[in-house]
Write a protein that binds this DNA or RNA. Structure first.
Lengths: 138, 138
DNA sequence: ATCTAAATCTCCAGAGACTAGAGCTATGGA
DNA sequence: TCCATAGCTCTAGTCTCTGGAGATTTAGAT
């Protein structure tokens, strides 16, 4: 039987976050010790590791909840799990594209500025003030 | 003199967001009409466009506040403005790198799953359960 | 058995950057 | 003059935690 602190150390999920996941219904309410402290077993450890991993991949709580619900029915087809992951992959790709555009824009702004002149002439400030100095649409 | 709605239309910043920016001290409290409605001038339009542009680039409120403070002193050197933009560029690049790793991982997971088999054997679910199936560290 | 320090409990507030709603008032055009 | 639209303030909710207050439990040392 693990305390919440043990579970935290083993999974890398902080203690208040574990309690938060319980509140959100991602993990079952734990058994309690005589003194009302949470006590966990191997199963809980696995479940939490699953959640941690999914969060690391950027899946949100709702998606994780859904995946957990799916995994409770091992004999159904896995189309939905596939869809959740594929959708997420798509949104990650979209984010990357957006950030790349930002990167270009910021690169251009920064490259014009060596920090040596006055605010008045600073390309950073001027770029922000005047959208016309931008290349692309954003 | 523009109403808050006019300002919103011209800058693409939503009305409640404009009020929020006022509350956060990014824009000066506007003059008011007899009936207590906000009235704006060209200056305010420019300021808000500046903020909008900076937000589009992903700068946070604190950074924008700093840039605004800097731009109030046009004859000082612009080293800080340069630094803010350069720092942000760095953090954008870091985010891109992280997301690319996610992308790879998700790609790998999804490519193993065609949605046609059962949850029990689903690579999506199995990957999440077993970190050992992952390539890299994350 | 007793003491103490660390861990845990619950509950509440805050982070960031808005967004939405309730309930009321002002404005502008027919 | 009427009425729809737009505006006002204030509060609360979003999402995923994170941190603190103040009380209690636990584990280990004496």
């Amino acid at each position: 039987m693990l305390s919440i602190g043990d579970l935290s150390k083993r999974t890398g999920v902080k203690v208040p976050t574990i309690r938060y996941y319980e509140q959100m219904g991602l993990i079952d309410a734990a058994e309690r010790s005589e003194g009302n402290q949470r006590r966990y077993e191997r199963q809980d450890l696995e479940r939490l590791a699953f959640i941690r991993h999914a969060r690391d991949l950027g899946l949100d709580i709702a998606a994780i909840r859904e995946l957990i619900a799916l995994s409770a029915h091992p004999h159904q087809p896995c189309g939905n799990a596939d869809r959740i992951a594929a959708d997420h992959l798509k949104s990650v790709r979209t984010k990357i594209e957006k950030l790349k555009k930002l990167e270009e824009e910021l690169e251009r702004i920064v490259s014009h500025c060596d920090g040596g002149h006055s605010i008045e002439d600073c390309y950073v400030i001027r770029s922000l003030s005047d959208h016309g100095l931008c290349d692309g649409e954003h």
